[in-house]
Write a protein that binds this DNA or RNA. Structure first.
Lengths: 216, 216
DNA sequence: CGGCATCCTCTTTGATACTG
DNA sequence: CAGTATCAAAGAGGATGCCG
């Protein structure tokens, strides 16, 4: 059935690509890294544009290759959860590095691109730092605008930064707006005032953000 | 012309994959990293299995995306050289990491796989170390067996390891044999004596190899 | 030769619809 | 919720032809 098209090269890179080189494969792994355990439909919403048969096929393939694990819950709940295996989690540094390489490409306008705030988790954890470790913890919320559930929570405190998909109780700062505005602000390419003028909705204390941005 | 099939996601990883996620793209970049400037036919021999029209299409695409540069020589020689741009060279850490992730997959037999000794350059430089920096430099030659030009030179000395595609004047050690035997020996999974029994041809001083392998 | 372009067949993808 | 079924369109793979 699965043609199992391999490069047929005895090379570590080619072997890796035989497993994760198929279209959509690394993005599926991105979702599983960012969200942890996932239902099928969670994956679909985090992977706008993927065809459902492709998602099913990739998950089967990745499972067979020991990257993904499938956990079927009991009949009463009738839910299936998809996880990364340990082997799969070892791909995280690869995704971080490849994402960092791709970061400059985010400068171009995103007209027509889909956008989920949780995709910013990796860049946020890589490029932002808590520059005031002794201060009280702060919480920042990023909201995509369109869908109220398209929200990422950034928590900083004690010199560390965490992200969580979904909202928070009482954030210090909420940024709501278009993808490029959020990214521009987080990347330090855009001042809050400029972004505001361009349509970003800023609610709360801007100092919470200043604390995380590189000096400049 | 080029349908320019993009993921349409405003995410750094997806953007990176829009550029280097196509089939064969990362392997082309591997060849350019390992060989430096390349003629079209050099790329073909280093990429067994690729269709010539695909190679041409990928090179065009990578050039348009600023990863590859094409250098046309003067009419008398009428040769075209392909390079990586600086941006392209920045992918090296990504390939190293992804290759390292794929390394365990090399344990499975390579029946029918193509094999070029120069594909071992990355693993050799990553996983071998000169454990006798004060000793005289040594040269080891890896030969694939079939084609006399399928040869990689490893030079170690002063605590550093270099590799070069092609042969050397007077190597201290020459290992000739099947892909898995070479890899098994370099990975320390196979003793020279065992590999010899399995068909590896060992000429010269085995101490040259011992110097580079992790203790054990 | 070196660097492709063309033609052809086969597989994969993408979009949509449908089901236990 | 977690997929399978179907089908048109695009892409991959292989052979060969062309042109400086």
């Amino acid at each position: 059935m699965s043609a199992d098209r391999t490069y047929g090269q005895y090379c570590a890179l080619a072997k890796a690509l035989d497993v994760v080189g198929d279209r959509w494969a690394l993005l599926i792994i991105r979702e599983l890294l960012l969200r942890g355990a996932c239902r099928y439909t969670d994956l679909q919403t985090g992977l706008p544009g993927i065809a459902t048969n492709l998602l099913a096929a990739r998950l089967r393939r990745l499972e067979a290759d020991g990257v993904v694990r499938r956990e079927a819950a009991q009949p009463p709940v009738a839910i299936t959860l998809f996880h990364l295996t340990e082997r799969g989690k070892e791909l995280e540094p690869v995704l971080l590095l490849l994402g960092a390489w791709g970061a400059p490409l985010m400068a171009e306008p995103a007209a027509g691109d889909a956008f989920c705030t949780h995709w910013l988790s990796f860049p946020v954890r890589q490029f932002l730092h808590d520059r005031n470790p002794d201060g009280p913890p702060v919480t920042i919320l990023l909201a995509g605008g369109g869908d109220a559930r398209n929200v990422l929570t950034i928590e900083a405190g004690g010199g560390k930064i965490h992200t969580r998909i979904g909202g928070a109780e009482s954030p210090d700062l909420v940024l709501t707006g278009a993808a490029q505005l959020l990214v521009g602000v987080l990347a330090g390419k855009l001042r809050l005032s400029e972004a505001k003028a361009a349509g970003l909705v800023v609610e709360g204390d801007p100092a919470a953000l200043e604390r995380l941005l590189p000096k400049g």
